[in-house]
Design a binder for these strands. Structure first.
Lengths: 202, 202, 202, 202
DNA sequence: CATGAATGAGTCTTCATTCAT
DNA sequence: CATGAATGAAGACTCATTCAT
């Protein structure tokens, strides 16, 4: 599982170096099992230096989490903004999501590992992000209804929730938990079910 | 958020008393943020007593987790075993799931909170359980196909994954994250989409 | 290493049963590494029962130690009282000592293992016992001088100290540390040196 | 009982500071009765600092013990290497030994107090050291035989054991247990007995 | 008498954080 | 800016002892 946090290999400042090292560590272990010393070592800096850039371990973790969440969200938002064909947009989102997961680009898997339930503030922020995302997808669904791609009697919000669940749980589950590849026919099946349902046609 | 772990209020042995107290604590906080003293206090026993029954905090956590997972799985299995009408069975599963979640019966929410990635053994066990569950649901879908309730060209495993995702993320998300009730019309919408899809009928 | 603490196998009361079990345990491990539960288990009684007979672990240890020390001392005293030929008495003492060590009769090895430096009172008692023993041996040496078996210009006390050291360290060392048998020729060599010294005769 | 572990009072690093403090504590009390906090306090450092230098209390104890044993052994070895007159060498060894004991230089008394029976590895090491020492002394005795200072029919190994017993138990006993001075006439008596034995000259 | 469930004082150990260099 | 030596708060765990049965 190669971690590819900085694929463009730009010149990195100490601050970002530490951030990326921290993400790698938080991907390997629990928040509580990662020590600041380990992060410093992986970043190749001294222990004290971490505190030059991040006032505490908790703050550092927050930044890691935001960083990853933002990457994730942005890839969604990007697609949502240039929609013309809803079905195609959905497929694009799925593909981008899959690619991020399989490349573990920008530590996307952190979202699957760490649940910052103990940092109330961060938890609230996550919920907010989720709402934004859901709102965006719901809007996409409504656009689909307008474009007559989607049935007009569909509950747009529920459809949005379901679409997110498919991305996050179905695809994520296969890759992160089963540690398997997602085959193209699986995506087709998934989209087929989303589009036509599983019910026998009367 | 009233926790109702022992709603029948039977006589409890010290061992179960401690288990239930621990579940409550693990529901409130991280594994690492819950102290053994707190668990003991909530159970109304001395610190040492916890160790009379559980050899370590880790062991106690495992037992909490198994206890909750078993409750959860059993409720699924129960329904899977007495299927006649697949659609109805699905609805029953959803309802039971919802009820467990809203009553937080038997600490079901623990499954949403804690991910013991650091206890490899437990993690493996969780994955195994998940496979079993998925296999059961896949079988249910296949039964549906045999009974001609479900389209014969549906990918049964994918449909199973989706059904689980809907239960776990859509319903769980509403209750645990949004801390909202799930309305009957939301379930209807969800099942409608699962059954008919969202695609416009050509 | 068969432990033979109660070779006469008389009917034993609970109190003595516990004492002997404790000696066995203290022979195997440090005072601090032996737990009261272990002692109780080995004695085949309940944990609480130990406290019926001995008010604390420390008290129990003292009794173990006294018991062993007394056995040891008595065997010396016995020989010291019926002296006619000093050289023979010395040999008898040595043989008895050896036998006790090799049979580990009455837990004699406890004296080699535990040094209760932390129980000041017990420590004082040990010192006292040692003085008594030394006095007895010194007296034996003086008797030897009177009987003209021993040189009249020998420092009796020093000779006594040396005789004890030979028993305790030379013989004990071979058996307890080297875990070897003491051969008859070794005793002969030892006594030969004690009697004639190692110096070349001018 | 003034402890004089660092009589030259050189500049000490934190690591040695802690070591010497620990030796002092282990001289006063049992391994199990000495707490890490006490050691830290005596060394004038924080509790955590102890762990910067020694990974555990056990490791620290081992180092204390080795440190003391090495000092002790070295003083013997030193003398054994520059022998010309065996009787004189013995007297030198005795004197050095006495001096170390009375000055308690480098925590020599630790060897009399602590018996690390519970640290098997350390125990084995002690036995090994003892063998080395015995071998050295035995060699010295043989040298004495070659030089015709010592009777040729003396059992060299037994004579070695006895010489060690005289040092360790007779002299050590007087100083450490009786807490007395060793007078010159006592040494003379001891050596006299070693050389000529106690037997009446026929 | 005998028991063992219950207890909490006491320890080792970890690790985030500080700060002098 | 960068560092890492120093620190102590915090927590898991042990075990001698008590006491209700």
């Amino acid at each position: 599982m190669p971690v590819n946090l900085n694929y463009k290999n730009e010149e990195l400042g100490k601050k970002e170096l530490i951030l990326l090292a921290a993400i790698e560590m938080f991907l390997e272990k629990d928040y509580y099992q990662v020590t600041v010393v380990e992060i410093a070592e992986r970043a190749g800096v001294g222990k004290g230096t971490v505190y030059e850039y991040y006032s505490s371990k908790e703050v550092l973790f927050r930044e890691c989490f935001s960083y990853c969440t933002n990457s994730y969200l942005n890839s969604f938002i990007e697609h949502l903004n240039k929609t013309s064909n809803v079905k195609k947009t959905m497929r694009d989102i799925i593909n981008t999501h899959l690619q991020m997961l399989s490349e573990n680009r920008r530590g996307i898997r952190l979202l699957y590992k760490e649940r910052p339930y103990n940092f109330q503030e961060l938890q609230n922020w996550v919920i907010e992000q989720r709402q934004t995302l859901l709102a965006g997808i719901t809007e996409l669904i409504k656009e689909g209804i307008r474009l007559k791609e989607i049935r007009s009697d569909v509950d747009a919000e529920m459809a949005g929730r379901i679409f997110l669940a498919l991305n996050y749980v179905v695809l994520g589950g296969i890759i992160v938990i089963d540690e398997d590849e997602v085959r193209k026919d699986q995506i087709d099946s998934m989209l087929d079910i989303l589009w036509h349902g599983i019910g026998e046609i009367q």
